[in-house]
Amino acid sequence: MGSLIFRLVLAMCTGGLIGLERGRKRRPAGFRTYMLVSLGAAMTILLGQYESVMLSTRWTAVVDAIGQRTDISRIGAQVINGIGFLGAGTILVTGRQQVTGLTTAAGLWASACVGLAVGAGFYEAVFLAFGLIFVCMRILPFIENILIENGRFINVYMEFEAVEQMGSILHWIKEQDMQILEIDVERARGAQTSYPNAVLSLRLNHKQQHTQVLAALADLDGVCKMDEI
């Protein structure tokens, strides 16, 4: 009983700590979601171990009579498959053609794997995986932001007063020695905005900070809104 309580509590704590960072950022899945996913995964492995023990002890006569055999790894495999549906629900494509929720979905999947390891009693892997996941979610975003800010590629969401002004904006971009890799213009007036908008993928031939590029684009005539995505 002591081992059972320890494993379930450890699964809850590790899952909750992983989800705490996502909850602070108001992501679709947060503290309680991660906690429940890890707890459920650990419970699944414990159930498989329980069935394996019972089939080899108390239920031996029944097993011999019906010839039933079980593989405890099959139950854990279903957790990995099932978590995909939960993770897919957190992935969204916004009106700016921006995909969000991938990190949340990946975190849920990793949390489920940690829960499976806790349930199996593989504590060395549990603490190592928890530390690495924590590094990915808390420390690496700072490094990622630095690399993106100084990178040669930038994706820009723009809103402007009229579609006709797009030509002069594109002409200015080319004059600044920027390469236009892709452009997606939305002419219809949707519910999210009353202005025409576009998503531009640009390559900066000269290294410069993205904030400077965005500030220069925002100062152009006809530009109503400007964001990096």
Rank of each mutant, 00 (worst) to 15 (best):
D64T: 15
E124D: 12
G95N: 15
G131H: 05
T100M: 05
I139A: 10
W109Y: 07
N150W: 03
F134Q: 04
L92K: 07
V118T: 03
T104W: 08
D184A: 10
L170S: 05
A125T: 11
Y157I: 00
R187D: 14
G121F: 00
L132P: 08
A162F: 07
G119S: 00
I83W: 03
I154N: 03
V156I: 04
G121R: 03
G107R: 01
G82H: 06
G82A: 09
H171W: 04
I91K: 14
G89N: 14
A129L: 02
I180S: 03
R152A: 12
F85W: 06
K174T: 04
G89C: 12
V126P: 01
L140G: 04
V63S: 12
I75M: 13
G131S: 14
S168P: 02
Q179K: 13
L132K: 03
E161W: 01
I183C: 02
M158K: 02
Q192I: 11
Q97P: 05
Q68C: 10
L170C: 09
A125D: 06
V126W: 00
I91C: 14
N155G: 00
A117M: 09
S168E: 09
G95I: 10
F142P: 02
F85Y: 07
I180Y: 06
L92A: 07
A117C: 11
W59C: 09
V126G: 01
S194C: 11
I91G: 15
V63Y: 00
I66H: 13
N81D: 12
V62I: 14
N150P: 00
V79A: 13
